[in-house]
Computed example of a mutant assay.
Amino acid sequence: MNDAGFGARLRLRVEQMDTVLADPAANLARIATAQARAAADGVDLVVTPELSVTGYDVRDAVHALADPESDAPFGELAGGPDVVVGAIERDASFIPRNGALHLRGGRVLHRHRKVYLPTYGLFDEGRYFGRGDGVRTYDAGGGWRMGLLVCEDLWHPALAWLLAAEGAHLIVVQSAAAGRGAVAGGAAGGRFASWGAWEHLARAAAIAYGVYVALANRAGVEGGLVFAGGSMIVGPDGEILARAGDEGEDAITADLSLDAVAAARRPYAHARADDPRLVAREIARIVESRP
Rank of each mutant, 00 (worst) to 15 (best):
T119R: 11
G132Q: 07
E152F: 09
M146G: 12
V173F: 01
V183F: 11
R145P: 07
L101Q: 11
L109Y: 06
L109D: 03
R113V: 12
Y116L: 12
G185R: 07
H156Y: 05
L154G: 08
A184G: 15
L148E: 02
A178M: 03
A164S: 15
L154N: 02
V115Q: 05
H156C: 01
G105Q: 11
Y116E: 06
G130C: 12
M146T: 09
R127E: 02
G167Y: 13
G134C: 13
V173N: 01
A177V: 00
Q174H: 01
V183C: 02
Y120V: 15
A100V: 13
R145C: 08
Y116S: 04
H169W: 06
L159N: 00
L162T: 01
H156L: 06
F129R: 10
E125V: 05
L159W: 00
L101Y: 14
G134E: 06
G142V: 11
V135D: 08
A176Q: 07
G105D: 12
W161D: 14
T119H: 05
A158D: 10
L122R: 15
R131M: 09
L122V: 07
V173M: 12
G142H: 05
W155L: 08
R111K: 13
G126C: 09
R127V: 14
A178K: 02
L103V: 15
C151L: 03
D124Q: 12
V108H: 00
R127C: 04
R107P: 02
K114L: 11
L170M: 13
Y120A: 10
L170C: 10
G134F: 11
G106F: 05
G142I: 01
A177R: 09
R127T: 14
G121I: 08
R145G: 02
A160T: 06
R113A: 14
V108S: 13
R136A: 15
R136V: 09
L148V: 14
W161A: 13
H169Q: 15
G134K: 09
W144V: 06
G142C: 12
T137K: 10
G121N: 07
G147R: 07
W161K: 10
A140F: 11
R127W: 01
H112G: 07
W161G: 08
R104Q: 14
R180W: 07
V108P: 12
A165M: 07
L122K: 12
R111C: 13
L170R: 01
G106D: 14
G132T: 14
L163Y: 04
W161M: 10
W155I: 01
G134I: 14
A168F: 02
G179C: 00
V135S: 05
V172Q: 02
L109W: 00
L103E: 08
H110N: 13
F129Y: 15
A184Q: 13
E152L: 05
G130I: 15
A158L: 13
A178P: 05
Q174N: 11
G141L: 14
G126A: 14
S175G: 11
G105Y: 01
A140N: 10
E152Y: 05
F129D: 04
A140P: 05
A177T: 09
R131Q: 09
A165L: 01
G142F: 02
Y116G: 05
